[in-house]
Lab assay of single mutants.
Amino acid sequence: MKATFQVPSITCNHCVDKIEKFVGEIEGVSFIDVSVEKKSVVVEFDAPATQDLIKEALLDAGQEVV
């Protein structure tokens, strides 16, 4: 499964690193693409990962998800 999250609070590479760390810890996540320019995060994943778990990880990383 693939999901795109709009994350307007992404401003720098530190944000990218933190997002990759938090989302990458979720079992089932196979790909993460964070774009500072587009302020988006694209995640490819399989169970047990879910969109809700990914959104929670983004929030835990200090990001706003819309």
Rank of each mutant, 00 (worst) to 15 (best):
M1F: 10
M1C: 14
M1V: 07
M1L: 08
A3M: 10
T4I: 13
T4G: 05
F5P: 00
Q6G: 08
Q6E: 08
V7T: 05
V7Y: 02
V7W: 05
V7A: 02
V7C: 07
S9C: 12
S9L: 07
S9P: 04
T11H: 15
T11C: 14
C12L: 08
N13P: 11
N13G: 14
H14Q: 15
H14N: 14
H14T: 15
V16R: 10
V16A: 08
D17T: 14
D17C: 10
D17K: 13
D17S: 12
K18F: 07
K18N: 06
I19E: 01
I19R: 00
E20T: 14
E20R: 15
E20Y: 15
K21A: 08
K21N: 06
F22W: 09
F22I: 11
F22T: 07
F22E: 03
V23E: 00
V23M: 05
G24W: 13
G24E: 04
G24Y: 13
E25S: 13
E25M: 14
I26F: 02
I26S: 01
I26G: 01
I26P: 02
E27K: 10
G28H: 01
F31S: 10
I32F: 03
D33H: 14
S35L: 06
S35I: 07
S35E: 04
S35N: 11
V36C: 15
V36E: 04
E37K: 09
E37G: 06
E37W: 10
E37I: 10
K38W: 12
K38M: 12
K39Y: 06
S40C: 12
V41F: 04
V41C: 04
V41H: 01
V41S: 02
V42P: 01
V43P: 00
E44T: 13
E44Y: 15
E44Q: 09
F45E: 00
A47S: 09
T50L: 03
T50C: 04
T50N: 06
D52T: 09
L53E: 07
L53D: 05
K55M: 13
K55I: 14
E56F: 11
A57C: 04
L58S: 03
L59G: 06
L59D: 04
D60K: 15
D60H: 13
A61L: 07
A61K: 01
A61F: 07
G62A: 07
G62I: 13
G62D: 06
Q63L: 14
Q63R: 07
Q63G: 05
V65E: 05
V66E: 08
V66K: 08
V66A: 10
